[in-house]
């Protein structure tokens, strides 16, 4: 726990577990795509942490994708990813603001919605 970590790490970890539940498997079945999500602590493109949300296999891994080319790649700042994943920010708005950058297939990108992520509960 030495390095200051990303808020998104918590969400990704939850997502990872979530994918093993029935609801998670449902999402995998529904989406069936592989997303790469780059998360930067402060500025997009710098010190990015790479996550692969594989909704073909129902897996979430850290580090570059080894199974070829992801269907779509998103880049976020840490804060903005949290906002999009928890429904505080509409992905299209995030895109227009440049808070979310996309490469790859547009139709794949369109399936990237906040409802594929589990929501964090509050103590």
């Amino acid at each position: 726990m030495a390095a200051p970590e990303l808020k998104s790490d918590a969400l990704m970890e939850q997502m990872k577990k979530h994918l093993s539940t029935d609801a998670g498997k449902e999402i995998t079945k529904k989406v069936g795509l592989v997303y790469q999500i780059n998360i930067a602590p402060k500025k997009i493109g710098f010190d990015e942490v790479v996550y692969i949300v594989d909704l073909k296999k129902g897996e979430l891994t850290k580090g570059p994708y080894e199974g070829g080319k992801p269907d779509a790649t998103f880049s976020f700042k840490d804060e903005d990813f949290i906002k999009v994943a928890t429904g505080k920010m509409n992905p299209q708005i995030a895109f227009m603001r440049g808070a979310m950058k996309i490469r790859g297939s547009l139709s794949a990108a369109q399936k990237f919605t906040p409802d594929i992520f589990p929501k964090p509960s509050k103590l």
């Binding site: 939850q14 577990k17 979530h18 093993s20 539940t21 589990p118 964090p120 509960s121 509050k122 103590l123």
Partner: peptide, 14 residues
């Protein structure tokens, strides 16, 4: 009780 619940929820024991 809520804290316990939220913790369980976050570790996917909904």
């Amino acid at each position: 009780w809520n804290k316990l619940g939220a913790t369980q929820a976050n570790s996917v024991q909904s």
